[in-house]
Simulated scan of single mutants.
Amino acid sequence: MTAVEERARCTAPVAVLWEVLMDLPATTEQVPLTTGTGDPGPVRLGWSFTARTSLGPLHLDDEMVVTGLTPPSDGSPGRVRILKTGRLLAGWAEIEVRPDDEGSDGRDGDGSLLVWREEVGPRAAPLAALTPGPLQDRSTRELLRRMVADVVARAEQRADGPVPG
């Protein structure tokens, strides 16, 4: 397992991007055959959620818990750290939302930046041996790219007006 990173600029303010990101179960919407569910209430330390991938009667639960949480404030970045705790998948994610220093449209202080680092792989060594690192990294990077793009799109839509739905 190696960590992969995806970055995306967002025209929405940091607070809006953070708000969208904190709907953590919704970040699974871009993962094929997957739905997310979470503990009741707002995201907090110890808050857990599950991404369930199903194909017919078969399913894989990617269970996760929030182990670090610092909301953005006064120009400081917001950060969330997530640990994979399930029996099948190991890994972590560190996600940061911060002001975009260069500005999303070239103007200082405009917009935000989402930086998502993640490492994921099979928990059991025999399974890890069956999934070559480069193949696993490419699939992780593609899923991460989709999730980041979706979070940014939803934040920009929310900043521009009501989200349909």
Score class of each variant (00 low, 15 high):
residue 1 M to F: 13
residue 3 A to F: 00
residue 6 E to Q: 14
residue 7 R to S: 14
residue 7 R to D: 11
residue 10 C to P: 02
residue 11 T to Q: 15
residue 12 A to L: 05
residue 12 A to F: 04
residue 13 P to Q: 14
residue 16 V to Y: 01
residue 16 V to N: 01
residue 17 L to T: 11
residue 18 W to I: 10
residue 19 E to L: 07
residue 19 E to P: 00
residue 19 E to K: 12
residue 20 V to S: 03
residue 20 V to Q: 10
residue 22 M to G: 04
residue 23 D to H: 13
residue 25 P to I: 00
residue 27 T to D: 06
residue 28 T to S: 15
residue 30 Q to T: 14
residue 30 Q to M: 13
residue 33 L to Y: 13
residue 33 L to V: 06
residue 35 T to S: 15
residue 36 G to Y: 03
residue 37 T to G: 11
residue 40 P to A: 15
residue 40 P to Q: 11
residue 42 P to Q: 15
residue 42 P to T: 13
residue 43 V to E: 06
residue 44 R to T: 14
residue 45 L to P: 06
residue 48 S to Q: 14
residue 50 T to L: 07
residue 50 T to A: 15
residue 51 A to H: 12
residue 52 R to E: 12
residue 53 T to I: 08
residue 53 T to S: 13
residue 55 L to N: 08
residue 56 G to V: 05
residue 59 H to E: 10
residue 59 H to G: 12
residue 60 L to R: 10
residue 60 L to Q: 11
residue 61 D to V: 04
residue 61 D to F: 00
residue 63 E to T: 13
residue 63 E to V: 14
residue 68 G to Y: 12
residue 69 L to T: 03
residue 69 L to E: 00
residue 69 L to F: 14
residue 71 P to S: 07
residue 72 P to C: 01
residue 73 S to D: 10
residue 75 G to T: 04
residue 75 G to C: 04
residue 76 S to W: 07
residue 76 S to D: 11
residue 77 P to N: 04
residue 79 R to W: 01
residue 80 V to F: 09
residue 80 V to H: 08
residue 81 R to G: 11
residue 82 I to C: 12
residue 85 T to Q: 09
residue 85 T to N: 06
residue 85 T to G: 07
residue 87 R to N: 08
residue 90 A to R: 13
residue 90 A to M: 06
residue 91 G to H: 08
residue 91 G to Y: 08
residue 91 G to A: 10
residue 92 W to G: 02
residue 92 W to R: 10
residue 93 A to R: 07
residue 95 I to C: 00
residue 97 V to Q: 01
residue 97 V to A: 05
residue 99 P to Y: 09
residue 99 P to F: 06
residue 101 D to F: 04
residue 102 E to Q: 14
residue 102 E to S: 13
residue 104 S to M: 05
residue 106 G to N: 02
residue 107 R to I: 08
residue 108 D to R: 13
residue 110 D to W: 13
residue 110 D to R: 15
residue 112 S to P: 10
residue 113 L to K: 07
residue 116 W to I: 04
residue 118 E to Y: 03
residue 120 V to K: 01
residue 120 V to F: 00
residue 121 G to P: 02
residue 124 A to M: 10
residue 124 A to D: 09
residue 125 A to D: 11
residue 125 A to S: 12
residue 125 A to T: 10
residue 127 L to H: 00
residue 131 T to D: 12
residue 131 T to L: 15
residue 135 L to K: 00
residue 140 T to K: 03
residue 142 E to T: 09
residue 142 E to V: 06
residue 143 L to D: 10
residue 145 R to D: 07
residue 148 V to E: 01
residue 151 V to D: 02
residue 151 V to N: 00
residue 152 V to K: 03
residue 153 A to P: 00
residue 156 E to P: 01
residue 159 A to E: 14
residue 159 A to W: 07
residue 162 P to N: 07
residue 162 P to M: 05
residue 163 V to A: 13
residue 163 V to E: 14
residue 164 P to H: 12
residue 165 G to N: 09
